[in-house]
């Protein structure tokens, strides 16, 4: 799991993600999930490269099971993009950085 993305938990998800003024990309991940590590590297890159446009947060589905259940997540890695408290994009599996950037860009004005 990537160490350089700040975490979000079930407890602070609403404050950190749903009430954020910037769009938030949440990386749902777990220590046992190897493909999550590849997506974690991309997410960490985006946290730096898009730091004025989006916030990136990591959620450990093992420690925080409620939020993934709420959004129907049954597979990781999954990236969810929230804007203005609403779910805008759901990206499942180990996909390329270009594709992730493209999907995020659709929601940046």
């Amino acid at each position: 799991m990537s160490d350089n993305i700040p975490s979000v938990t079930d407890a602070d998800f609403e404050a950190e993600v749903l009430r954020s003024s910037l769009p938030v990309l949440v990386d749902f991940s777990a220590a046992w999930c190897m493909p999550c590590k590849a997506v974690g590297v991309i997410a960490a890159d985006l946290a730096v490269e898009m730091k004025d446009k989006i916030i990136v947060r990591l959620m450990d589905v093992d420690a925080s099971p409620k939020t993934p259940a709420k959004y129907g997540i049954r597979g990781i890695p999954t990236l969810l993009l929230f804007k203005g408290g609403e779910l805008k994009e759901s990206i499942v599996g180990a996909v390329s950085k270009e594709k992730i950037v493209g999907l995020i860009a659709k929601h940046l004005s």
């Binding site: 046992w32 049954r74 990781i76």
Partner: peptide, 17 residues
Amino acid sequence: LTGRGVSYCATCDAPFF
């Protein structure tokens, strides 16, 4: 349904089931 029950990685997703 990928990520909504369809999976290609048992070691990733088994704990959800």
